[in-house]
Nucleic acid binder design. Structure first.
Length: 578
RNA sequence: GCGGGCGUAGUGUAGUUGGUUAUCACUUAACCUUGCCAAGGUUAGAACACGGGUUCGAAUCCCGUCGCCCGCACCA
């Protein structure tokens, strides 16, 4: 594919990156002293710091930038939540496999109409039906294995004894949906309402592979944006409509196109989805994901999740191939509708009209004076039922209502039809949900792999300064003659100003620079003999290896300016060094 | 779950017709040295995945377990 060609030449072995990550404290395989567990990884000191930086940038973009709110919901949920979300049925498939061709099938599908409700059967019952009916592999006719449940959610029990069945959440999203009524009230009953959540999700993957790309316990940053279903525009869309996106549409087209055109041409189904695709792209670039190795791929129609109306994945090119790191879906009203159905709670939003509308309509007015004597105690019940009946249902001058399971036909003598005026100040709508959902571990790993460079056995991470776990290395050129003391003071001053540093006085200066390069520290400050004479130090930039001299007294201001990517010329004293 | 491959210091490795104290490099730490990009020296630390068997003797052969990697399948 054409996006691949532009990056040909960057060949990467994930094991190099993972090896460095383990060696330098970014990632450790979990429980390694016991042999490890596939699909579980721990973040080391540097990995944790870096991931925290990514989360903080993301959080600020959504809360400060877009005015969204953040919540933190539980990771354990009762079964009904995941019945409503569809995960219980989607996850807990009863599977059989052909012993010959190894094709896997859903057991209940194979039963077909040999049973009225195959989906309700237990494994042993399914087994029995398959054997009794001599059902074989539909593909090759081979013998089938016994039925096994493939449950990709971690099941648990809430409370002692037999308790309630619960699951570890497979996504953070449901925690937002179930809180929608409270959040909507919090937002003073207005749409749009954006809610974000950062947290862990759990999926008992059959076969986790590829390092942190598919984990059994993983970190997500999810946003659920509730919008008016009839208005999927976005106020800031006009500001970004000329920005470019690289798209791989599900009609097979690959194109680089502006956000505005993509919506006009119907490639992306609405403004708000397109806006957040751009927003996602900017976020990813800001933390150091390589734009040349980033694209958006539209889900195939049959690939689309059970809830999605349209879905685009932000994919990064990694050594494993193009890998989904963010999914941006229009989930329509699916989630809220399901929770309405399962909980019985009204989770609609009230869409107030600008001016209340007067609506005239006909209503049935029962004549209680006639109903009472005729039906006695049932009279008022029948009357209420008649009031609730639409006058268009009147047939042959009579209306039929059902009360306590009994039908009553009421003739014209029992009611009038009257025209009434009603004030309607709005309508109830079920909000639609736009969901940018980020795989935090995959994003973190992408930053590491895209930052990884190797020159003649020298490995380094060109991590963006914004997310680098250590911002400044501080060294004395020699650990003597007071140089170390001065360097320690500078180190402390920068740390106390809120910037992460690493003090190092062991080994040659080159080795110390190399150590910092390897963990992606963008800048190093070195105290040398000139420092003692004129109060200046060298500031060395990682990628260019260029050095400038700056005043010790300016050091925290310079440090801050450097991290913001500001031009440092105004701080330079004397000659710079290549 | 199936098929294949593989488990030796933090990392990468040598070592299998069974044979003394398990090789080398990098890394790490301490000291010396070192006036800006992985210099050098001395010393130190650190490994045969686990369990059982065969044998006078097992990293090496056999059996089992566990784990990892790759493919198949699965992937909301």
């Amino acid at each position: 594919m054409s996006f691949g060609l532009s990056i040909r030449g960057i060949t990467m072995d994930a094991s190099d990156v993972l090896s460095l990550c383990k060696r330098r404290g970014f990632l450790y395989p979990s429980y390694e002293i016991y042999g490890g567990v596939a699909g579980l990884y721990d973040y080391g000191p540097l990995g944790t710091a870096m991931r925290n930086n990514i989360v903080e940038i993301w959080r600020r973009l959504y809360t400060l930038g877009e005015g969204f709110v953040e919540i933190d919901s539980e990771t354990i949920g009762p079964e009904v939540v995941f019945k409503a979300s569809g995960h219980v049925d989607e996850f807990a498939d009863k599977m059989v496999k052909c012993k010959v061709c190894e094709e896997a099938y859903r057991a209940d599908h194979l039963i077909g109409d040999r049973h009225p409700n195959p989906g309700s059967l237990k494994e042993t019952e399914l087994d029995e039906l398959i054997r009794k009916n001599g059902i074989a592999c539909p593909g090759c006719g081979g013998e089938l294995s016994s039925v096994e449940e493939f449950n990709l959610m971690f099941k648990t029990v809430i409370g002692p004894g037999s308790g309630r069945v619960g699951y570890l959440r497979p996504e953070t999203a449901q925690g937002i949906f179930v809180n929608f009524p409270s959040l909507y009230r919090y937002n003073r009953e207005k749409l749009p309402l954006g809610v974000i959540q950062v947290g862990r999700g759990y999926r008992n993957e059959i076969s986790p592979r590829q390092g942190v790309i598919r984990m059994r316990e993983f970190n997500m940053m999810e946003c659920e944006l509730f919008v008016d279903p009839e208005d999927k525009g976005w106020p800031r869309f006009k500001d970004v409509k000329d920005e470019k996106l690289k798209l791989l549409a599900n009609d097979g087209r690959e194109l680089e196109i502006s956000v505005g055109e993509a919506v006009e041409q119907g490639i992306i189904c609405n403004q708000v989805l397109a806006y957040f695709m751009w927003f996602t792209q900017e976020f990813l670039k800001a933390i150091g994901v390589d734009g040349a190795r980033l694209r958006f791929r539209q889900h195939e129609k049959d690939e689309m999740a059970h809830y999605a109306a349209d879905c685009w994945d932000a994919e990064a090119l990694l050594s494993f191939g193009w890998t989904e790191i963010v999914g941006i879906a229009d989930r329509g009203c699916w989630d809220l509708s399901r929770h309405i159905k399962f909980s019985g709670v009204d989770m609609s939003a009230f869409k107030r009209f600008d001016t209340p509308q007067e609506v005239e309509r006909d209503v049935i007015k029962p004549k209680y004076g006639v109903l009472g004597p005729k039906y006695k105690a049932l009279g008022s019940k029948i009357g209420k039922a008649m009031e609730a009946t639409d006058p268009s249902l009147i047939q042959n001058d009579s209306v039929t209502v059902e009360v306590d399971g009994q039908s009553y036909v009421l003739g014209r003598e029992c009611f009038d039809v009257a025209r009434v005026k009603e004030k309607v100040s709005g309508v109830k709508v079920i909000p639609h949900v736009i969901e940018p959902s980020h795989g935090l571990d995959r994003i973190t790993y992408t930053c590491l792999e895209h930052a990884y460079t190797k020159k003649e056995d020298m490995e380094m991470l060109r991590i963006s300064a914004a997310i680098a776990p250590i911002k400044f290395g501080v060294f004395p050129l020699m650990a003597r003659d007071e140089l170390d003391k001065v360097a320690m003071d500078i180190d402390q001053e920068i740390r106390y100003s809120g910037i992460e540093t690493y003090y190092d006085d062991s080994g040659s200066i080159g080795r110390r620079y190399a150590r910092m390069d390897e963990i992606g520290t963008p800048y190093c400050i070195t105290v040398d003999y000139q420092t003692l004479e004129d109060g200046t130090v060298t500031l060395r930039e990682r990628d260019s290896q260029a050095q400038i001299r700056v005043k010790v007294q300016d050091i925290t201001i310079v440090a801050r300016a450097a991290l913001c990517g500001a031009n440092l010329d105004q701080f330079v004293v004397g000659e710079s060094r290549a």
